[in-house]
Nucleic acid binder design. Structure first.
Lengths: 343, 343
DNA sequence: AGATGCTATGTAAACCTTTACATAGATGAT
DNA sequence: ATCATCTATGTAAAGGTTTACATAGCATCT
């Protein structure tokens, strides 16, 4: 029963007194085998504790039941809940997920490419906005792939994310509704396309409210806590200060709050701050950060579902799935204080 | 070159004008093949872009180059940095990592067992303190395994973690040095063995300082933010309050800080609080949480290294590796205020 | 009764490797 | 010159599956 070596399809066939072909059919195409036979087979499977050897199956079929997930950084606070969604969906369809991170290192990217070439993964989920395979990308034979968060720059790959423009719009609109006009956008146009879209949302909101270019301040950061802190420093060197900071992501917002705190200002009394992403930390800042939530687990689920569909149909039903971002109001936003407002 | 179907060892053999056996040998036992032949083979490999088909290799060898990592919850803030360590170490030895989470669901545990039975993983990393395979655990054929954070309850499996007793000791000692005597320990003796050890560190520290049992308060929680909050409520129902809260982990500490904050108290003026783990959030609390750091990436690295050793040697060099936990002093601890101290 | 078609099952090849065993050639010892 | 060794390579089997093709039994139709 629980022998030292696992049961093979031959063991099952012997006990059920049929051929191995019939066993295989009983498992994968039950309608093709007689009821009585099917019964004998399932009994034999129960007796032996047989499980299909995945390696043999993959070898024969020419593809595995593993999905490779590549992210630039597994430690990213956005990563783990996405993973939950991906994993659940994959598992329930008989797939496993395999994770890798590139740390923006081309060498590692290449290793994953080799990995794919050796047939170890049937599909690919990409977190980065780019295919991380360097100059070999063009000639690479890639399995069906889908991107998460943003379109993949150099490959015609469907993706699942959030409507960044709409999300950013919700943040500006809140700020505008509170009475802010001079709103600084602390952005990052280099690392991720999604960030550029968020800026578009900011501009659109300002346009719609009739706020002129003279009241807009846009600073480029790189999406890190440190860059948020730095942005504050830069702003204090200029002669005009905003009454609110709209940040491209929560990390930046946290940096801004730290920078403002270090100068002795109170949020939201002196300045309002918004983020984007709703990382777990956001709720525990003091004050708790008002931000835009990305439904991460759901994104993961949809991304995997789309990939699985691709795997069976070959054709993507849709080329992008945009989920709705939600405004989550906490305590980092209030009306501008008189002092600043009259400046 | 970048054909539709990947090159096999036969393609390489044909181009190099040798047999497939020689190609295989040139790759895996280069010293067994003549220099001239080796050269021809590597040229042929370069031309074809050949990569060994991992499925075929695993099938022939009877084991894969994948390591299964099972955690109760991927979303755990402790998880991702461990993953980084695991992944880096595995990758550099030609292994990939496969992740799964059980969510404490026995059904899912069984799925992973089937997974292992189908030979898809050469080794197993366990985050839970238990083997998550229900009643089948006893009879299960398990591959070489190692635990992370704490010993695996029902299997003689080596593990890598932090010295929890020593870590907890550092926390109490800090509190004692600041002058606290009445220190409450908010613990959790149910979910993880590591937590029980932390309590042992607390008791040992109190013993060493000669603080009697009448000044010790121990409350049982379950390691969540909510349970920390609840502990505070309970304590306020009693007639005596501690001057400091030593919490079994950061989540609990965060809960305690929230509870105390809600009642209008200031930390660390009115109460001191310590955590354990140093989750990313801890640094951004207000006040920033004084806690005990687990070197997570390092733990991951060591755990994987140990597993890889097991995989090649068969015998574990050591049965447990305990890393040193570090005290990280931030702003949630100070001397007890006069008011409470004289109580 | 013979032809036809359908259903359920079996036989054997293929997927790509690794490696035990065989072989051939070269070297060295007697 | 014969034999033993050694080195470099080739041949073929094995690993566990899936599936095209073959076959056998049976029912249906003319």
């Amino acid at each position: 029963m629980s022998n030292s070596t696992p049961a093979t399809i031959e063991d099952v066939a012997r006990i059920a007194e049929v051929s191995i072909a019939t066993v295989s059919r009983a498992i994968h195409m039950p309608e093709k085998v007689a009821n009585s036979t099917r019964l004998k087979v399932s009994q034999a499977i129960a007796i032996t504790g047989y499980t299909t050897n995945a390696m043999a199956r993959s070898l024969r079929l020419g593809r595995s039941n593993m999905i490779l997930v590549v992210a630039p950084d597994i430690g990213d606070p956005n990563f783990s809940s996405i993973l939950v969604g991906l994993e659940n969906e994959a598992r329930s369809h008989g797939y496993g997920i395999l994770i890798g991170h590139t740390q923006n290192d081309a060498q590692r990217g290449l290793e994953y490419l080799k990995f794919l070439n050796s047939n170890q993964a049937a599909g690919l989920i990409l977190f980065t906005g780019i295919l991380p395979f360097g100059h070999q990308t063009m000639t690479a034979r890639l399995p069906p792939s889908v991107g998460v968060f943003e379109p993949v720059f150099n490959g015609g790959i469907p993706y699942v994310g959030v409507d960044d423009i709409e999300g950013a719009r919700k943040a500006v609109d809140l700020l505008l509704a509170e009475g802010h006009r001079k709103i600084a956008f602390i952005g990052d146009s280099r690392t991720r396309l999604a960030y550029t879209r968020r800026r578009m949302g900011y501009e659109a909101g300002m346009d719609a409210a009739g706020v002129g270019a003279d009241l807009r301040i846009v600073l480029e950061g790189d999406g890190t806590i440190e860059s948020g802190r730095l942005a504050v420093e830069q702003l204090f060197m200029r002669d005009t200060l905003p009454t609110a900071f709209m940040c491209v992501n929560d990390q930046t917002a946290i940096g801004v709050m730290i920078g403002l705190g270090a100068r002795g200002y109170d949020i939201p009394r002196d300045f309002s701050v918004t983020g984007f992403d709703d990382v777990p930390q956001a709720a525990f800042m003091s004050p708790a950060l008002t931000t835009i939530r990305q439904p991460r687990t759901l994104i993961g689920k949809h991304a995997m579902a789309l990939l699985l569909e691709l795997l069976s149909d070959g054709q993507p039903a849709e080329t992008e799935i945009l989920l709705r971002p939600d405004l989550v109001v906490r305590n980092s936003v209030s009306a501008p204080s008189r002092e600043w407002a009259t400046r």
